[in-house]
Simulated assay, not measured.
Amino acid sequence: MTPRLSLRGVSRRFGSVAALDHVSLDVPPGEFLALLGGSGSGKSTLLRVVAGFEAPDAGAVELDGADLLALPPHRRPVNMMFQSYALFPHMSVAANIAYGLKREGRPRAEIARRLEEAVAMLGLAGLESRRPHALSGGQRQRVALARALVKRPRLLLLDEPLGALDANLRERTGFELRAIQRESGAAFIMVTHDQAEALALADRVAVMDRGRLVQVAPPREVYDRPATRFVAEFLGAANILPGTRRPDGALDCPGAGCTIRAADPLPEGAEAIALRPERIRIGARPGENSATGTVEEAAFRGESSLLLIRLSGGALLRVSHAEEDGVPPPRGSRVRVNWDAASVVPLLG
């Protein structure tokens, strides 16, 4: 199937800063894609280029084979939902949702039918006459989403859609957003800096750094097999252990005080490995890799405790100790840690 959205070599500079550096990306129909990155990574600029609010210096942007760059924002079959929601304060919920349809000159009967469908889909029945100030944060979010979806866009762009919600609402509203995306059938591109949000909601995660896409893959693959050191450190705060690759494909790691072996020989050029905190075990249980160290800090986190263990070679290891594994060792304890070769991820960049 031909990708619905296609970006090829898209670049955008602001003075000496490359906000987008030859970005190429395909988004197929019905996909939920999360653009993930820190401040200044280029994710919001990319969203604005697709929406038409920013003109690229180079590159092509197509939707179903049609040139999007030739169209002004209001003529693109694309809607954008802003972080602030941008609701009209003097209009009711119904008027806010129907605004775009009225601007297009749609017949009254069609507007009424689409409004009813949007209200039902977003769970806004009974709120049609309220003004935005009388709504909760979650309700305002759903009104903004209904206003975007009522026009039946082929592509919906969301700029930090859950950023204005408190922590208690974020998870529930996030799952509602995912369900709405599946029901609508539209492709969603969501900008976020929240790693857990991206992993939980997206079909694929596109990690950006300094204007470039450094990895685009399903959430589990991005988490378990980060392509670069940046992805490993940014997503889930993996342990990074540098060393020297041996001829047999193992890694001599002075900081860990041991030689580390992966499931397959490390590729040429690998000078470090990534290791997730939850993949490390404490105790004398068997494992292809092991090291010794001292517990420097311990922090209780509900279902687990985070331990900082100083290895014999000087490296500081973050270890997630599950409650089911018993009471974590106290500060000052001398411990042995071990991990399987399958948990070792080679890093090339």
Rank of each mutant, 00 (worst) to 15 (best):
G9L: 08
F14I: 11
R170N: 10
P226S: 02
P56L: 08
V27E: 02
P77I: 00
A120H: 11
H133K: 14
S290H: 15
A146L: 03
R246P: 00
A34K: 01
E323N: 14
L63I: 14
H22G: 11
I180Y: 11
D26L: 05
G211S: 01
M208Y: 04
G105N: 08
R106S: 03
R225E: 09
I273T: 07
R147Q: 11
L306F: 08
P218C: 04
N338M: 10
G40Y: 07
P226G: 05
D224A: 15
L177P: 09
C258Q: 10
G211Y: 01
L46P: 01
E197F: 06
A263T: 03
P72I: 12
G38Q: 12
A237I: 13
P286C: 05
V222M: 01
M190Q: 14
T45I: 07
L47H: 03
G100C: 09
I260S: 05
G255Y: 01
R281I: 00
N338R: 12
I260P: 00
A148V: 06
P219Q: 02
T192S: 00
R131I: 02
L241G: 06
E221R: 15
A202Y: 08
L307P: 03
L266V: 06
R8A: 14
V143T: 07
E160L: 10
S16A: 15
A202N: 07
P265W: 04
S333W: 07
L241R: 01
E171C: 10
F230H: 01
V23S: 06
T294V: 15
L306M: 13
A109S: 14
L311A: 09
L20S: 06
I97T: 08
M81E: 01
E297N: 12
D194Y: 07
A58W: 08
F175E: 12
R246G: 04
P28V: 10
L47W: 07
V191T: 06
R279T: 15
M80A: 02
E303Y: 11
K102S: 11
P267D: 09
R301I: 14
L266G: 07
R48S: 09
E296A: 10
D224W: 13
R212W: 03
R4V: 11
H74N: 12
F53D: 04
A19T: 07
G37K: 01
R279Q: 14
G9P: 00
A179Q: 14
R336A: 10
A250N: 08
L87G: 04
L317T: 09
G302S: 11
V119G: 07
A237T: 14
R113Q: 15
R13K: 12
A315P: 03
P29V: 08
M91L: 15
D194P: 01
V344T: 00
A186R: 09
G15F: 08
G174I: 05
W339F: 15
L155Y: 11
L169Y: 13
P219C: 02
G185A: 06
D340K: 12
A298L: 12
R261I: 01
A238T: 04
L101P: 06
V216T: 11
R336H: 07
E176I: 02
V205Y: 04
V335K: 12
C258A: 15
E62K: 05
E110R: 09
H193E: 06
R182L: 15
F53I: 03
V23W: 02
G163E: 13
Y99V: 03
D21V: 04
G211N: 00
A125F: 08
G249D: 05
L169Q: 12
D224M: 14
V205S: 03
